[in-house]
Design a binder for these strands. Sequence first.
DNA 1: GTCTATAGTTTGATAGAC
DNA 2: GTCTATCAAACTATAGAC
Lengths: 198, 198
Amino acid sequence: MLGTPSSDRIAKRREATRREILDAAWAVAREQGLGALTLREVAVRVGMRPPSLYSHFESKDAIYDAMYGQAWQIFHDQVKDRVLPKEPRAALLEIAETFFDFAVADLARFQLMNQRSVPDFVPSKESYAMAVEVLDRLRRDLAAFGVTDESDVDLFTALTGGFVDQQLANDPGGTRWRRQLPRLIDMYVKEVKPRRRR
Amino acid sequence: MLGTPSSDRIAKRREATRREILDAAWAVAREQGLGALTLREVAVRVGMRPPSLYSHFESKDAIYDAMYGQAWQIFHDQVKDRVLPKEPRAALLEIAETFFDFAVADLARFQLMNQRSVPDFVPSKESYAMAVEVLDRLRRDLAAFGVTDESDVDLFTALTGGFVDQQLANDPGGTRWRRQLPRLIDMYVKEVKPRRRR
DNA sequence: GTCTATAGTTTGATAGAC
DNA sequence: GTCTATCAAACTATAGAC
């Protein structure tokens, strides 16, 4: 006698399929551009017929939304347990480089996360929460070095974000801006004068 | 007896229609997003049927291309005759603010000019030339203050571009980053040490 | 140069059998 | 949960009359 699959097992399978779909969606977005994403292409890659996607996502927008949340989730997982150096310059450089490398690795992902590239797309509350989580984490990291002014945090995000933009737009795959990150952090440290972490 | 319109007059009329179409295209892009631009919507606004657009542009891509070139052209016109202060700090601030204000005034335009927002769109040689022109102009402007290292120029574009990005993405219509531009220029001046213009 | 007509795709999404 | 069948709509682009 065979038992029926436990509901736990079913849920796991469902989740796995969802992830397969998202993986395919990311692949398409990377290869053809975020705005060129189509349900057909995604379905083909997963080995499904397009209508079957609707068993897992209620619309194309829901896929964009899941991608958005997933991207921020992945980055959050990557930074949430890191231990930063006590010395401000080294720590801030690590923060900047981690974000830079993550962002530069995938233009489509960066466009979805940080630019308003998909017309009418607005992340759901749940997905947006992940982005907020990451920014809060950055705020706490900076605060540990005495950087608490909102203007100082804004300065930091603008500086690192600007480097990412230039790298992606004008030297994709290269290091023209990446290699200037240490210099950037030096500038920032001189300006904001963070103190050594306690 | 009526004469026939001079070929000069005909050319003027053609050019005017082209501009009308581009104006409509910009309006759609601003209102609905750059990626949501459709020939139908553009035609409706101009008061034409969609196929008529093909008398003026050979494809949708050609419209994107003309928009791209036009945007850089407009910005170039805006800066080509300006006389900068001799004092480095004031001059660099003016350069940064001019670019910032222009970019922040229109998200769709900024996306077309500086981000890779439209899948597969590659500007034609002629349109791209306008962008190069502007960058050359910036190089000459900076050179007048002794800023000639490519890395210093790259730093400047990344800093100002980053501010634009943050302003558009996280405080559209506001001044959260705009008001920190003087501070940014102070940082840059300390780092690069431009000399007074001769 | 603008129109009508229409081709030829592609798209996101639904209905209902299995 | 996946399929087939299908839809309705939108799209870019072309042909040819006026």
